[in-house]
């Protein structure tokens, strides 16, 4: 995986790298941690069960990490769902969850390369 791959993926690598003090390998190492983050399954599961409190916790955690690495494809839907969950909005979350799942899976795919 290269920074370019991530750029193609849609990440704001410039911002992400700057936050990592332009240390590429450090940045990439952290990015690789994301797909395996336990908060993803927690989020999916909690939304499935309608446990909005737990879903919020998980989304909130993911938002921080994804945001700090400027992984926009994940950060955008996560931010959206976090705000909805913060208000414990009763709605159909499946579209957002799918969007998040796809972004994570794609990142996982990139990371494996």
């Amino acid at each position: 995986m290269t920074v370019n791959d991530l750029k193609t993926y849609g990440a704001d690598t410039e911002e992400g790298l700057r936050r990592c003090m332009n240390n590429e390998s450090f940045y990439l190492r952290l990015v690789k941690m994301i797909p395996g983050d336990a908060s993803f399954p927690k989020l999916y599961d909690a939304v499935d069960k309608g446990d909005l409190d737990a879903a919020f916790e998980a989304a909130h955690a993911l938002k921080g990490s994804a945001g700090n690495l400027s992984l926009t494809p994940i950060f955008a839907p996560i931010s959206e769902i976090t705000e909805l969950l913060r208000a414990r909005t009763q709605t159909d979350y499946s579209a957002l969850i799918n969007q998040i799942r796809e972004a994570r899976d794609e990142l996982a795919h990139i990371c494996e390369e």
């Binding site: 936050r19 990592c20 003090m21 240390n23 450090f26 952290l30 941690m33 994301i34 955690a61 921080g64 990490s65 700090n68 690495l69």
Partner: peptide, 13 residues
Amino acid sequence: EDEYVNQEILKMF
């Protein structure tokens, strides 16, 4: 801080 990524970034800072 419990999130690994955030920990790492702050540590580096």
